[in-house]
Write a protein that binds this DNA or RNA. Structure first.
Lengths: 159, 159
DNA sequence: GCTCCTGGTTTAATATTGCAACTACAAAAT
DNA sequence: ATTTTGTAGTTGCAATATTAAACCAGGAGC
């Protein structure tokens, strides 16, 4: 099989994340789901993708625990797709993508939406990365990768 | 044409970002580039992807202004791919992906690297989103999307 | 019953991806 | 000077993914 290589078991957490949400439509579906869209038809109209693809994407998102199928809600005996906590956890990724476009896109005037704080209705700040002691970290130069200490195993004296 | 739909001109900045970096390999190449990898062969060995794919990915990353080709560096008359500022701006996206995996992955023990502050060598905090007045915002429920105010046009009295 | 709407599945054409083999050329070894 | 190795690709073909469009089933409306 020439199958697309799976990154599910990669050591790099970024690769692992991409294995799950690293495709166009999936992330856009999640974006829509976080905006409150719930129904097959809503996603399809909003995204304009082929229905069979929407079908498969919804299925894998459910399989991966990002969306959940809920039996109904507005009466009709259809079902809805609602984000799980794991799905809601994708929010920062979407914010990071958004802010990157806002900062670097060639045609920022074409961007028509703005992420605002619900209370003040004013734009949010850029995502911030802090060290454990609270110092704010700038770009990637302020960080390094380290080997993760092996997980503790119970009931073993040494290892 | 059944061509893959382009999101380059989408109104949503997330879609626009995905149009550029919304594929597996591109993001992994950028990750490697930010880790200091520079050469075709380094990327290929590290990622294990087919060379023709690496070729096309590198080309589009250069076209899109994320990587830059630099003439040499270590003597040899070959060239290198180095991240531009726009490329370095992708760092927060990678951090967000990483943290999402760390928090929600089913097998977190398989993740072997840890992002640490360069000075203290201690793990970084989670990315934080703040309102313009500094209040920390939690999940997606604390924010809304608004229409972006139209860009100012010079020399027009009203609009 | 007949028809429309929702939420899909199936099909066939087209596009993209992946692998392997091949090329071109510079560097290093003999 | 000639062979060998390493780098950075290209080419061809098979496998897979995406798309649009046609089809289908169940429920609601008439």
């Amino acid at each position: 099989m020439v199958k697309r290589t799976s990154l599910a078991r990669a050591e790099c957490p970024i690769a692992r994340a991409l294995d799950v949400i690293g495709d166009w439509w999936s992330l856009l579906i999640i974006r829509d789901a976080l905006l409150g869209r719930r129904r097959f038809g809503e996603f399809q109209k909003s995204l304009g993708l082929a229905k069979n693809i929407l079908t498969t994407r919804l299925r894998t998102l459910v399989d991966r625990g990002i969306l959940q199928m809920a039996p109904a809600s507005d009466g009709s005996a259809y079902q809805e797709y609602v984000p799980t906590p794991k799905g809601r956890g994708i929010f920062p990724i979407l914010v990071a993508l958004r802010q990157w476009s806002e900062e670097f896109d060639e045609h920022p005037q074409e961007i028509t939406t703005l992420l605002v704080d619900r209370d003040s209705r004013r734009p949010v700040r850029k995502l911030e990365l802090h060290a454990s002691d609270g110092r704010m970290l700038g770009g990637f130069g302020d960080t390094t990768l380290m080997a993760r200490p092996a997980a503790k195993r119970r009931r073993r004296v040494s290892n």
